[in-house]
């Protein structure tokens, strides 16, 4: 973990209620896709944990969904704003277990960390497949970014307005055989994916956090191997350790 200052280069809407925040600053503490950062916002006591979508030397991209007053305030931050950020939080995805044909399954605002993962798996030459679930056609985002990685995502929407009508588990049935599974999304989705998943895999969870770095025990969960903190021991858990 590192506390550092990032400067907003761009903060713009991407889809219905979804924004892309492009930041410039020190990204050296970020070591794996699936990690998150914790942003200090003027006027709010707790920091806001946001998953890392992508990063490079000096560049950080976050995608966030407007869910409450904090994220709503974030939409009004202009370019040039300096943000106090704790970076490199959480364990992130372990890419060494992917095999040659990993499947990435994301739902809604759980999709951004999977983009950073997909990019790095493609760089290793893996045949990455992706199933991306949305509520409706107006929610779609990141599809072109996945296509730019030569990944044609299987899209599902709950209302059938784009792609397959249904849930990501319906999309999983339409995908080809896979060697391993990586997923992130709402807990109900993760549970359904867990039940459908025919291989081992890694599941990224979300929980309300106090600190984001393992101090307060606010985000604890039970696993087969004891109590874990989503912020520090997670957010990524192995399929085999999850207790529902």
């Amino acid at each position: 973990m590192k506390q550092t200052t990032f400067t907003i280069a761009q903060n713009s809407p991407l889809a219905e209620g979804i924004y892309r925040l492009h930041l410039q600053g020190d990204t050296t503490a970020i070591t794996a896709p699936g990690q998150f950062v914790n942003l200090k916002l003027e006027g709010f006591y707790l920091r806001r944990p946001i998953s890392v979508c992508d990063w490079a030397d000096g560049e950080l991209t976050l995608l966030y969904k407007v869910l409450g007053r904090g994220t709503e305030a974030m939409t009004r931050l202009p370019a040039g704003t300096r943000l106090d950020v704790l970076t490199g939080l959480g364990n992130g995805y372990d890419m060494t277990l992917s095999g040659d044909r990993p499947l990435l399954v994301g739902g809604g605002v759980g999709i951004p960390p999977l983009y950073g993962l997909a990019k790095r798996l493609r760089a290793q030459g893996k045949a990455v497949q992706a199933v991306l679930g949305f509520n409706s056609a107006s929610d779609l985002f990141l599809l072109e970014d996945f296509r730019a990685l030569q990944i044609e995502p299987v899209v599902t929407t709950a209302d059938g307005s784009a792609g397959l009508r249904g849930l990501v588990t319906d999309g999983m049935a339409a995908a080809g055989p896979y060697s391993y599974l990586y997923t992130c999304g709402p807990e109900a989705m993760l549970r359904a994916v867990w039940q459908h998943c025919g291989t081992s895999g890694q599941f990224s969870f979300e929980e309300r956090m106090g600190c984001g770095f393992g101090a307060c025990m606010g985000c604890s969960c039970r696993t087969k191997y004891g109590t874990k903190r989503i912020c520090k021991d997670g957010p990524v858990l192995q399929k085999e350790e999850i207790l529902w």
């Binding site: 709010f44 006591y45 707790l46 929980e207 309300r208 307060c216 025990m217 606010g218 604890s220």
Partner: peptide
């Protein structure tokens, strides 16, 4: 002790609430 079920953390204008 595991403590209480989550969510265990909430926010207010002057700080936070915890029910760890």
């Amino acid at each position: 002790r595991f403590g209480n079920p989550t969510p265990r953390i909430a926010e207010y204008a002057g700080g936070l609430l915890n029910a760890v």
